[in-house]
Design a protein around this nucleic acid. Structure first.
Lengths: 234, 234
DNA sequence: TGTTATTGTCTCAATATGTTACAATAATAC
DNA sequence: GTATTATTGTAACATATTGAGACAATAACA
């Protein structure tokens, strides 16, 4: 089961990226977390940058490896560079828990800066894949996260803050919903990201007034009530 | 005149920071640019990160070296990581123009990512200092910039975009104005950053309504008209 | 004392948002 | 069928915010 670690000749030292991948299941906002083999550590997906590769390309590559998806909303939001964020002791445990021997001066145990990105994906389209060191990758509710490794909690909180600030400006609902959705689903996305309840009538009027939605057929769910229209973004 | 280059043992390889330092002279928004010795290159101030130094600390150190100032509004806004942004040919010219020999595989000629920050300072308080490789450092009007080295124009444009987005949220006027200022000066700061004229009466009402300003004595400038009040931030 | 440019504030109009109300459904129960 | 229920779409009105113009109150100077 022993495998080769990435070589220092292939990757830039001291540099990594981390991904906060948001998904929406119709009710709740979730993120993807890796669980490392034989440890309790849960972590954001991440990776290294090849020496002859654009930063953005490296992150897109990692995102595709974890989700199988291309052409996803992806945005850099912050670079974490404090000294204390690097924890060679934890990295060593994770690698050794995979049955790999690592020398004390291996480059993966050095200090790292992490350039953090967040991605927005349609929950239903993705089949997440764990990376080489982890045993599983799973969705976790943003309001009920487990303990995260190192500074990954801080990274996640910052991602959510940026998401909130960008909510209106970047039409973020578009990327978290299926192609067609109801007004209520759109409102739920907004409510979860903003962390507050919104008024139904005001929200509807505002969204319809923006001239960004197309109305389609009604959705009959079997509920004993008026059926809502489906919408898509223009 | 020959001097020693920074050693690879002291600094993290492949990593630099750049600073977009904004100042306001009462009329125009300006940034600080270095001019390298014996070249036509103009560039943003920047530097490297020590191996045992927090990223933020490195940038604060650099900001203090250039401006002499501490406790300045400073914010990270983006990390530039494309392959083509690194130009070892240009770096080599700059270093050799300082009368220093540099070998072709020196670490300063490697690929670099740059973590960009912007700072807001009070124009009148600062006495800028050039760095070891440059002959001068000067203020340039943001609307009339010279040709900048490598991707520094792109970095500057992005800084201005972020400044614009953060204008209301972070009370940016506070950092660009002297302690006491007139409503007109505050409005001018807003107008330049937003790139549009604002309505005097609406602006005044909005600012006074925010409950962030303290009104002081009037300012008599000698103009043949009513004297404006001076304000400071609470 | 009149002239000029600018400032502080008021008013009214135009928009935008908060709030309530209510008719129009889809399914189900009878 | 007809009544019942939950939810949706939209109208209506109230309130708040912003746009636009008007105007009196200066400072300095001729």
């Amino acid at each position: 089961m022993a495998q080769a670690l990435p070589g220092i000749k292939e990757y830039l030292p001291h540099l990594a990226y981390d991904l906060v991948i948001f998904g929406f299941n119709g009710k709740q906002l979730k993120i993807l977390l890796l669980e490392y083999q034989n440890t309790d550590y849960k972590a954001l997906p991440g990776g290294f940058i090849r020496r002859e590769e654009d930063l953005d390309a490296a992150v897109k590559r990692g995102l595709k490896e974890r989700t199988g998806l291309d052409h996803i909303f992806l945005e850099q939001f912050y670079t974490f560079g404090s000294l204390k964020r690097s924890r060679p002791d934890i990295m060593k445990k994770i690698i050794e828990a995979n049955g790999i021997n690592i020398s004390g001066n291996h480059w993966m145990l050095d200090r790292f800066m992490s350039i953090a990105y967040y991605a927005l994906i349609n929950f239903d389209e993705v089949n997440p894949q764990p990376d080489a060191l982890s045993k599983s990758i799973n969705w976790y509710n943003i309001n009920d996260l487990p303990t995260l490794m190192m500074d990954h909690k801080e990274i996640t909180i910052k991602a959510l803050e940026v998401l909130k600030l960008n909510l209106d400006r970047k039409l973020i609902g578009m990327n978290l919903l299926p192609q067609k959705f109801t007004m209520k689903e759109l409102q739920t996305v907004y409510e979860i990201i903003l962390g507050e309840k919104l008024r139904r009538t005001t929200f509807q009027r505002k969204m319809l007034g923006k001239d960004i939605l197309v109305r389609h057929e009604k959705l009959f769910t079997g509920g004993a009530h008026k059926a809502p229209y489906l919408y898509s973004f223009k």
